[in-house]
Amino acid sequence: MAEFLQLTVYGIVLGSIISLGAIGLSLVYGILRFPHFAHGDLITLGAYLAFVLVTTMGAPVLVALPVGVAGTALAAVAIDQVLYRRLRRVAPVILLISSVGVALILRSAIQLIWGPSNQVYATGIQFPYRFAGVNIKPDHLIIVGGTILLVVALHLFLQKTKVGKAMRAMSDNADLAQVTGIRVNSIIIWTWIIGGGLAAAAGIFLGMDTRLHPVMGWRILLPVFAAAILGGIGRPYGAIIGGLAIGLAQEYSTTVISPSYKPAVAFALMVLMLIVRPTGLFAGRKV
């Protein structure tokens, strides 16, 4: 029982990180209609931008977080306006290829600047709290708490602000949204700000939970995609549920199969979903 609870804790932590990535991916997919393959590398970028502040100024990770989020959001908007904007008129699949290129450019730039080896925010051992035989590290509480805060903020943004509503409308039906006079380009910019920012938060939390590495984001991209598809493309709320489901499934699977095959679990769930219900749990965009 204790082991099950312990895995549940790990699963929720991992699921929070995956959810943050998946929300942005799902929004971008729903509004711009292409799977953004560089999303994993935005996650990495966010983690490393915060790392700069942590190492140069000795700032705590939580102080560095907003800077990493802002920097990554800015980078996402810049990539979109310089590159994706020019390709938007052609087939979405060209955007897909382009995003694969961006993924490699970002990753190699990160490797070029910060080197190819592992980095950590803080050295030393954190003493975990123990509840009924379950270990919970302070970092775990920060990750889950931070995710909840961000999700609530996102919820308020999507429900209460005009931009948020326009965004949901674009994601539901882009043509209909344009007819009602929604300005497409500004909505797209907002989508990248939110997508990039949440990706950065995911990266920073991932870096706190494990280590920083130039391919950390790419490695988590598959579970993030799986979460977005599970929740339904263009459904930010679905992406949260999808992320938690994938995170828990990956951790529970370690009792049965080798932990190195965790990504395969996400993949299997995704394929299963694509076969049974390709629109996702919350009936996202139709295939």
Binding site: V93, L222, I229, P263, M270, V271, L274
Partner: peptide, 21 residues
Amino acid sequence: IITLKLRADYLAIATIGIAEI
């Protein structure tokens, strides 16, 4: 057999999974 009924972008995501596995 599993993925080709889907759209091109879903196939792309699925092939990443194959490569990773």
